[in-house]
Measured scan of single mutants.
Amino acid sequence: LTDEELVTMSVRELNQHLRGLSKEEIIQLKQRRRTLKNRGY
């Protein structure tokens, strides 16, 4: 997933992508998404 996709994707879509990932990967992705959102994309 690109940063842009992460930010513009709805939470529902995101959760579908996260299905099948490990807990660590999910946590990393969610942190990255929060960081991007805070940057004001």
Rank of each mutant, 00 (worst) to 15 (best):
residue 2 T to C: 01
residue 1 L to R: 01
residue 11 V to E: 13
residue 34 R to H: 08
residue 26 I to P: 00
residue 22 S to T: 11
residue 10 S to N: 07
residue 1 L to Q: 01
residue 6 L to R: 00
residue 39 R to Y: 11
residue 40 G to A: 11
residue 29 L to M: 08
residue 1 L to H: 02
residue 34 R to A: 12
residue 1 L to S: 01
residue 10 S to R: 04
residue 16 Q to R: 13
residue 9 M to N: 02
residue 33 R to V: 09
residue 23 K to F: 10
residue 2 T to M: 03
residue 21 L to S: 03
residue 19 R to M: 10
residue 23 K to M: 10
residue 18 L to C: 14
residue 16 Q to L: 12
residue 21 L to W: 05
residue 15 N to R: 15
residue 17 H to Y: 15
residue 41 Y to C: 07
residue 37 K to M: 12
residue 39 R to H: 13
residue 22 S to W: 01
residue 7 V to R: 07
residue 39 R to W: 10
residue 39 R to D: 14
residue 18 L to F: 14
residue 2 T to Q: 03
residue 11 V to C: 12
residue 17 H to Q: 05
residue 12 R to H: 13
residue 31 Q to C: 06
residue 14 L to E: 01
residue 40 G to W: 14
residue 4 E to W: 15
residue 25 E to G: 04
residue 9 M to K: 03
residue 6 L to A: 00
residue 20 G to M: 06
residue 16 Q to C: 13
residue 9 M to I: 06
residue 35 T to D: 15
residue 31 Q to S: 11
residue 36 L to P: 02
residue 21 L to I: 04
residue 21 L to F: 06
residue 34 R to W: 06
residue 32 R to Y: 03
residue 19 R to W: 04
residue 8 T to A: 14
residue 26 I to Q: 15
residue 26 I to N: 04
residue 39 R to T: 13
residue 27 I to Q: 11
residue 16 Q to N: 11
residue 37 K to D: 04
residue 41 Y to G: 12
residue 1 L to K: 02
residue 28 Q to P: 01
residue 30 K to L: 15
residue 30 K to Q: 09
residue 30 K to S: 05
residue 20 G to N: 10
residue 39 R to K: 15
residue 29 L to R: 01
residue 2 T to N: 04
residue 33 R to D: 02
residue 12 R to M: 11
residue 14 L to S: 00
residue 13 E to D: 07
residue 25 E to K: 10
residue 33 R to T: 04
residue 40 G to T: 06
residue 32 R to T: 01
residue 25 E to T: 09
residue 23 K to G: 06
residue 24 E to G: 09
residue 4 E to C: 15
residue 1 L to C: 05
residue 20 G to I: 05
residue 8 T to V: 07
residue 2 T to F: 02
residue 29 L to H: 04
residue 38 N to I: 07
residue 3 D to F: 03
residue 10 S to W: 00
residue 15 N to G: 06
residue 14 L to R: 00
residue 14 L to D: 00
residue 16 Q to D: 11
residue 17 H to S: 05
residue 9 M to R: 02
residue 20 G to Q: 06
residue 36 L to Q: 03
residue 38 N to Y: 08
residue 3 D to R: 00
residue 15 N to M: 13
residue 39 R to A: 15
residue 8 T to W: 06
residue 1 L to P: 05
residue 34 R to G: 05
residue 34 R to V: 07
residue 13 E to Y: 01
residue 30 K to E: 06
residue 18 L to Y: 08
residue 15 N to S: 09
residue 31 Q to A: 13
residue 15 N to A: 11
residue 15 N to P: 01
residue 25 E to C: 08
residue 22 S to V: 04
residue 11 V to Q: 11
residue 1 L to W: 06
residue 3 D to Q: 01
residue 20 G to E: 05
residue 40 G to F: 13
residue 2 T to A: 04
residue 20 G to H: 09
